[in-house]
Design a protein around this nucleic acid. Structure first.
Lengths: 218, 218
DNA sequence: TAGATTGTTAATCGATTAACAATC
DNA sequence: TAGATTGTTAATCGATTAACAATC
């Protein structure tokens, strides 16, 4: 059993998973600039990580570099893309067609990467029936029936907080294995369901904490 | 020098800052339910942390509990609010009035907490002059002049990635000490400027990573 | 070949947890 | 008082970094 396999068995640490998309983004800009080669030292310099950390992160997944040379940008980009699951498409369903939901539905970058919003639901009769981005907005009462007929990878919740848990429960009951939550609520899901929270307020509070922390020190 | 002071000198660890807003949210729901008392064990149970971690986190800021009793919900809520900087208001300026920018501007919860969007800027002539939420959308050419006259705590960037660094530079040059970035770009700021990234794509990629990781194991 | 840089091991650092004296 | 639970210390765990043999 290799050291990589042993590492992998314990699951990939959160820190590593957090950094992978950062590597992906920077490698993409390098490729777009026409840079073909990069070392862990250069990556670290640009992203404010140590070179050792970058090599250690990548070593969870394989050996993508070459001694004395570094990494081929295109090749590493390809590997990181694959590791992040960008070699397939994802069926997504959005619930909540308010400002935020609409923003998400119209964001072209998701679709380009293979994340396809296939249906949008809302409870507001004024919105139901309207086209937005890809699809006609349906009444949320149809959500359960829709999910039974259309296998869905990711459920997006962009509703007010008071209904988000009940929407989440519908997703889980209908076999959706991952939830992307934008509502300002801590949602409860079974252990085998993956959940990613985009808590805008939490982010803003971290900002205001650091702002005041600094001012107190000055 | 107390142990708390020694801890504080090194700056509050990221993990602690990440958990404070989570405590705040849960304490708020407890208060709204009329619960007046809570122990670290109960908090941990509800939020999936150990009781020791919660006590340790809080101890960075003071002693808010009572042996044999636990914490008074209202009192602790008050302390955590203050720690996070919710006892003052913040002047914010938003650049980018696309779907996402509009969503942010219309989100009432920010204003309620004291985070006030005072001005909105965009480059699109069709948007300039329109009212949205609080204010008339101004042309981004006026941003620098506006900032010179109106002290601003937080700059919000909800522009496409190709212009976000230049907007960020304007904010920094005009003395804005913290940036809330929604553009899909890693922005560079001086060391004394605080930046919080809301990278939607990164979050989605973490989700798809975990989704595939699990499927490979099954 | 000589220089550069990888992947990995061992050392270090920091964060989490268990344990417990203090005390309400 | 007896029971409960804090704040903190010491022990553990895990993540980061420094160092280096391997090798392109």
């Amino acid at each position: 059993m290799s050291s990589r396999e042993r590492k992998k068995d314990k699951g990939i640490p959160t820190g590593v998973v957090t950094r992978l998309p950062i590597y992906l983004r920077y490698l993409t800009t390098l490729r777009n600039k026409g840079v073909s080669r990069v070392s862990s030292a250069q990556l670290g310099e640009a992203l404010n990580f140590t070179a050792a950390q970058i090599r250690s992160d990548l070593s969870y997944f394989g050996s993508f570099g070459q001694q004395g040379y570094g990494y081929d940008v295109n090749e590493l980009l390809h590997h990181v893309s694959r590791i992040l699951g960008l070699d397939r498409t994802y069926a997504m369903v959005l619930v909540g067609a308010g400002n935020l939901g609409k923003a998400l539905a119209s964001y072209e970058n998701f679709r380009k990467r293979g994340f396809e919003i296939r249906a949008i639901f809302d409870i507001d009769e004024h919105l139901v029936g309207n086209y937005h981005a890809c699809c006609i907005i349906q009444h949320v009462d149809n959500l359960e029936n829709y999910l039974k007929e259309h296998p869905t990878d990711i459920g997006i919740i962009a509703t007010p907080g008071d209904v988000s848990q009940s929407i989440c429960d519908i997703f889980v009951r209908c076999g959706v294995r991952s939830i992307w939550n934008f509502s300002p609520v801590h949602l409860h899901v079974p252990e085998d369901v993956i959940i990613e929270h985009m808590h805008l307020t939490d982010s803003l509070l971290r900002l205001s904490f650091r702002l005041n922390e600094r001012e107190q020190r000055d």
